[in-house]
Measured scan of single mutants.
Amino acid sequence: MGFKLLSKLLVYLTASIMAIASPLAFSVDSSGEYPTVSEIPVGEVRLYQIADGVWSHIATQSFDGAVYPSNGLIVRDGDELLLIDTAWGAKNTAALLAEIEKQIGLPVTRAVSTHFHDDRVGGVDVLRAAGVATYASPSTRRLAEVEGNEIPTHSLEGLSSSGDAVRFGPVELFYPGAAHSTDNLIVYVPSASVLYGGCAIYELSRTSAGNVADADLAEWPTSIERIQQHYPEAQFVIPGHGLPGGLDLLKHTTNVVKAHTNRSVVE
Rank of each mutant, 00 (worst) to 15 (best):
P244N: 02
Y188K: 01
A21F: 13
V266I: 08
V121M: 01
R46D: 05
S223L: 03
T261Y: 10
R120L: 01
D29R: 11
S7W: 11
P69A: 15
N92P: 03
S205I: 08
A129G: 11
Y12R: 10
V265R: 11
Q228G: 10
C199V: 01
A51P: 05
P190Y: 08
G210H: 04
S7E: 10
A178P: 14
A130L: 09
A178Q: 09
Y231P: 03
S193T: 11
V45Y: 03
K91Q: 15
R226C: 02
W220D: 02
E157C: 06
I227A: 06
S27G: 13
R142A: 14
S38P: 11
I50M: 09
M18I: 15
G242M: 05
L96H: 02
K258V: 11
L13T: 15
N71R: 02
T153M: 11
E157T: 11
T93G: 00
G148A: 07
G89P: 03
Y196A: 04
S22C: 10
S16Q: 15
L97A: 00
G2F: 15
A98E: 12
P239L: 04
S264T: 14
H154G: 08
L24P: 12
L10I: 15
L204M: 13
H230Q: 12
K251Y: 13
D85K: 00
Y188P: 00
Q61S: 12
T253Y: 02
G122F: 02
I224Q: 03
R167G: 11
V45T: 06
P221S: 10
T134E: 00
R263I: 12
V75Y: 00
L173S: 00
E33M: 09
E203Q: 06
A218E: 13
L143E: 05
A111V: 05
E39V: 11
G65Q: 11
V124G: 05
P41L: 08
P239I: 00
L73C: 03
Y34W: 15
P41V: 09
T86L: 00
A90R: 10
I224S: 02
G122Q: 12
Y68R: 03
N92D: 02
P35Q: 08
S113K: 01
V237T: 04
G122H: 13
G78S: 09
V67R: 15
D248V: 08
G53C: 05
F3L: 08
T253A: 04
F3C: 06
A129Q: 12
G169R: 04
S38K: 08
Y135I: 01
H180M: 00
E267M: 10
G242I: 02
A66W: 09
L195E: 00
H260Q: 13
S22W: 11
I50E: 02
G197D: 05
G123V: 03
D77Y: 06
A209V: 12
D77I: 01
I238Q: 02
L243G: 09
G53R: 09
G105L: 06
S38I: 08
E219C: 04
D79A: 10
A213K: 13
P69Q: 15
F116D: 05
